[in-house]
Nucleic acid binder design. Structure first.
Lengths: 149, 149
DNA sequence: TTCATTGCAAAATTTTTGCATACGA
DNA sequence: TCGTATGCAAAAATTTTGCAATGAA
């Protein structure tokens, strides 16, 4: 059973219906490239279904987010639009290169340590974390140095 | 010399002008409560200057952000509006309580360790970090447990 | 058949912009 | 005085909603 199937099953289980539009939005969100915003998802979904409307994409994303099947994130300060990705991937964080715009995902056990610290020392119960970094990636940094010489 | 004075000086140094509106926006951003969005800043600024316009607040925030005097952040997934705070405070991160909405700031040297790891292992040069956590604060968690019994 | 979901268009929200006027330096 | 910055109102950009029609179960 694929991830999509599980998600669709969850939809049914909550009394909702499986429509071709929802299938398509899910497909787009789980495919690469990831981190698309609502409009980009709409454009990609429309490649397969020219009839789908932007309103439906927004409504579908809201439903999927509410059910925890999709995660919305703000990835950098210059892009004030929510980006979406499947919620089935393991916890990870994002780095956006200010030069080439590429998004790098990473994981680090040290982040979990921060959470444990906060739970222990402040009694916080952490449900969701968003660690969004901005800077220059290896390639762009090398390039910038070269052009400065 | 206060923080405001330094900021105003920086404005002048960049060939910009110090206006009463800019003073007020700066004051509001640096005062508490922090983490206001553009409209909240507008409402507070208007208490002292009923003539100030929302457009000016947006334009001022853009200028201050561009100069690095103010930082904009998205603090939680349910509030897709940028929140602002003075850029003069030491690096810190945010936790938003999903129940009472209160924002808690915290610092942790472990976060810097994550950055060092990324710089060392992936060659990333990190310019800005946003760690936004969501969950329940100590008080709300206790309350929820009580009401579930 | 039933009622959740859709597409469309209109509305609501949030942010930006054009332009004449005001005002800082 | 000179040119930046402002206020206003209009526009742009983004997201939500009302409603009749569609289609999943």
């Amino acid at each position: 059973m694929t991830r999509d199937d599980q998600a669709l099953k969850a939809l049914r289980a909550s009394g909702r219906r499986i429509t071709s539009q929802r299938r398509k939005v899910l497909q787009v969100v789980e495919a690469s490239p990831r981190h698309l915003d609502a409009e980009a998802i709409y454009l990609r979904a429309r490649e397969n279904d020219p009839q789908i409307s932007l309103a439906t994409v927004y409504r579908t994303l809201a439903v999927l987010k509410e059910m925890g099947l999709v995660e919305g994130r703000f990835l950098s300060r210059d892009h004030p639009r929510e980006h979406f990705e499947g919620a089935d991937t393991p916890e990870h964080y994002h780095f956006t290169c200010l030069s080439c715009g590429r998004i790098t995902e990473f994981r680090s056990p040290r982040v979990a340590e921060v959470f444990e610290e906060l739970e222990r020392e402040r009694g916080l119960s952490i449900q969701h974390a968003c660690l969004c970094l901005e800077g220059w990636c290896d390639a762009c940094r090398a390039e910038n140095q070269a052009s400065e010489e």
